[in-house]
Design a protein around this nucleic acid. Structure first.
Lengths: 225, 225
DNA sequence: AATACTTATAGTCTTTTTGACTATTACTTG
DNA sequence: CAAGTAATAGTCAAAAAGACTATAAGTATT
């Protein structure tokens, strides 16, 4: 049972992953004009689904990754962005803890893999532009609201959190100042536990204060790095 | 000579205007399902134009307002947003000095008018949602980069600039603190002139330092109101 | 001409927030 | 037990924010 597609409107997804470094999820096309090339997971919208639904469905079909909160990035619609015909694409993006997901290529993808943000292959169409736009957006977003809830283990150290910021923003932060700032906004709860199995002084473990986290998402949270 | 349209993809424009208060430009539909209703200026994209071009063309046809820098807002694509068939719309927005433009209804619009942001009539489809989203976006943007260049007279007073912010953000600001902040970032050049024809102490006139203005657009500019 | 209004502009004071550091502490491993 | 590594505490000065008060410079009114 195939749904009817809007054949001039597509979806592309920029899925950022983080564990130790920032990555992007790409799929290898099994068919079509760009067969054999790595590209952003994308596909056609059907008439009976919203854009948000389409993004999730397509991502799931191609990569096995499901149930994400995908945020709309932008519609890309220059006339020549797609070679064979006029196609406008609506791009989505999100950031997840990649180790939480099993990636399984499917549908029109012969493979699906995470790529380090610094080792992205040549991408077809305007996917390079979309990716860059998404990364800029991610950087911006990260300064406007707290992140980390679904990106770090339940209990984590301040350095892990700092590494997260440093990976995304690609900057170096001062450790004492970072901890002062983070602790200052009451976002973290001291777990009264320490790291285990580390070959140096064990750091305290913290977890997010979910209430503060949510309220900071809506109210003031500004990092001016 | 009519171009072929993508009949499932439309554009809608949220044009904010400011002189003494914040306004929105609406058009009255002369035909179609929503005939006689006020709505956001919008229309269909043709196959030979980019989204950005389409937005400007449509706005010009309907309202006579031309040559704006329209910023893409978001694609709205829920299945039932448009009654008769599936239509995804890409919304654009901008903020202009409304007194600089002549509004002339045309094309499928029988009328075009500015409406105070606080006196918006009932809008069809999801236009109310789009407008609200655009206003939220505008508020956000205004805190991230300087505004006023094309919104105020060449020479203006600090109170005029403050009123601009207060109108958009719908908040009240402290006068001395506002002037300290603004003067502190070297954004304004003292014109060594005063207001004329006012029935109270005349305020100094300032103009923007174009270089600083541009550099603040790209670098740090944070208002935490 | 004196006074009452307005609005502009200058300045004060206290509290927070940065940024750039230094110092010390705790733990692991050779 | 010393060396290495990272965690954590703390200092200090500069900058910024917030909440005000005070004064100045005009107009409009009595």
């Amino acid at each position: 049972m195939e749904q009817q597609i809007m054949d001039d409107l597509s979806i592309d997804c920029v899925i950022f992953g983080f564990t130790d470094e920032l990555k992007v999820l790409l799929v290898k096309h099994a068919e079509g004009i760009s067969k054999g090339k790595w590209a952003l997971p994308g596909g056609w919208i059907t008439y009976d689904e919203s854009l948000d639904q389409a993004a999730n469905r397509i991502l799931h079909l191609l990569t096995g990754v499901d149930n994400l909160f995908l945020e709309q990035l932008k519609a890309f619609g220059s006339v020549e962005r797609f070679p064979s015909k006029r196609v406008v694409t609506v791009a989505y993006y999100t950031l997840i803890r990649d180790s939480d997901y099993d990636v399984v290529a499917g549908f029109t993808a012969s493979d699906a893999q995470w790529f380090s943000i610094n080792e992205i292959p040549d991408l077809p169409y305007d996917h390079q532009e979309i990716l860059q736009y998404a990364w800029d957006q991610l950087k911006h977003k990260v300064k406007q609201e707290p992140i980390g809830f679904n990106l770090l283990p339940k209990k984590f150290t301040l350095l892990q959190l700092q590494n997260l910021y440093e990976s995304i923003l690609q900057i170096k932060l001062d450790k004492p100042n970072f901890r002062r700032k983070m602790l200052g906004m009451k976002l973290l709860i001291d777990c009264d536990e320490k790291q285990d199995n580390v070959s140096h002084r064990a750091a305290k473990l913290y977890q997010f204060n979910e209430e503060v986290y949510q309220s900071l998402k809506e109210h003031k949270f500004v990092l001016d790095w």
